[in-house]
Design a binder for these strands. Structure first.
Lengths: 223, 223
DNA sequence: ACCTGAACACCGTTCAAGT
DNA sequence: ACCTGAACACCGTTCAAGT
């Protein structure tokens, strides 16, 4: 052993999959999904666009690798010691914030659900559900529901963030939506009109966690 | 009144937004998201690609219109009379199956969450939550969680369906995945290995509905 | 007012040619 | 084994010209 795997560390010369993925992530974060082109990538890597194809089969594979890298990073950063419910909330928040910071990960997770990424999340939540004492036969359903909810809301939140003009503040944005809700047809949208005020004041992250708790309560009922 | 709005009915001549959207949906259903190009659309409509731009601003707007049309159709087809919990399950199943039959709707709902589509779903579920007697202050959170879960899982399910080779049966597919789960590293994936058998036998639609019930149970606890 | 279709700018991907 | 970069096929979108 000893210096056996030095090669994987610093290599300023030549391309490598890691280097390509790293620069792809930079591009995606800086300019969004449309910013990632093989031409832009090649320029930043000071090479020809064809060279990238030596290390990666196509763009879709590159996106999978990039989003796997983010999910793995987020999961690794998690502390390991917390009570089960608290631990699940931590995992949920990490993913929510990770996807919020890298919205393209969300899109990717949905376009081509990556098994490796999903498995990591599934496993972490599964262990906590087990620790909560959920019955053997309810475990699969409980974990599936939680994972789906957490990923689903995180991705929707990230997609929503890209929707509105970034010069508008969050408060202004909510105000605009709430005003639109209040102006809806009273016969067609009675309920939505009634909760418009709550829409104006709600906090997305808090609602997300409230939803996680709702599911956890439902799960706890079963055991 | 009387024959005042006849013009909106049959017009075999000339283009119209409705006609364009209709053909776009046919194309999307038949050949998937990549099949929708302005050139293919123009050919099917027997016109030039530029003509379409007279009726629709760009491709993104066309996708929004097409997916709104599907959601509206699905919501309209719903019966109106059922007990609240049953009604919510009906809405959930309609969306799940609608998105399963038109996977591109799912992708679209996430790429650019359409306010009109979301509002329709939010309103329908909201009325039922109100009918369940959920307290005023818990209503917004309850409906948000349900809508997020229902849309999220439906979209993920549709995306998963496009993943694997269509020649493989569902049972074969699950068997393959379960085998892969069982072969995972015992130290890194103890939980996932343990539930691999349940993965092999689970039914996606049933798990989806079980998740809805979990949330409904959590909601009912609060009131 | 509405349609036509060539033209433009820009992609992902391939591949013969190089080192 | 790995890199280069021109070439190919294919997009969305625009726009001068038509009716």
């Amino acid at each position: 052993m000893g210096k056996a795997k030095r090669a994987s560390e610093r290599r300023d010369e030549g391309l490598s999959l890691e280097r390509i993925v790293e620069v792809a992530i930079e591009l995606l974060d800086a300019e969004g999904e449309d910013g990632l082109t093989f031409r832009a990538l090649a320029t930043r890597l000071a090479t020809g666009s064809g060279a990238i194809y030596w290390h990666v089969a196509n763009k879709s594979e590159l996106l999978v690798a990039a989003s796997n890298a983010i999910v793995a990073r987020e999961m690794k950063a998690l502390g390991t010691r917390a009570a089960p419910r608290k631990a699940i909330r931590n995992i949920a928040v990490s993913l929510y914030e990770g996807i919020d910071a890298h919205p393209w990960v969300g899109a990717q997770l949905f376009r081509a659900p990556s098994e490796t990424a999903m498995l990591q999340i599934f496993e972490r939540i599964g262990r906590e559900i087990q620790a909560m004492g959920v019955s053997r036969r309810a475990q699969f359903t409980s974990v599936s529901a939680l994972v789906s909810y957490i990923i689903g809301v995180s991705v929707q939140n990230a997609a929503n963030g890209r929707q509105h003009d970034p010069r508008m503040s969050r408060a202004e944005f909510l105000k605009t939506i709430a005003a639109r809700w209040e102006a809806l047809d009273p016969d067609e949208y009675p309920f939505t009109r009634k909760v418009a005020a709550q829409m104006r004041e709600h906090n997305d992250r808090a609602e997300f966690l409230a939803g996680v708790d709702l599911i956890l309560n439902g799960i706890a009922l079963g055991c």
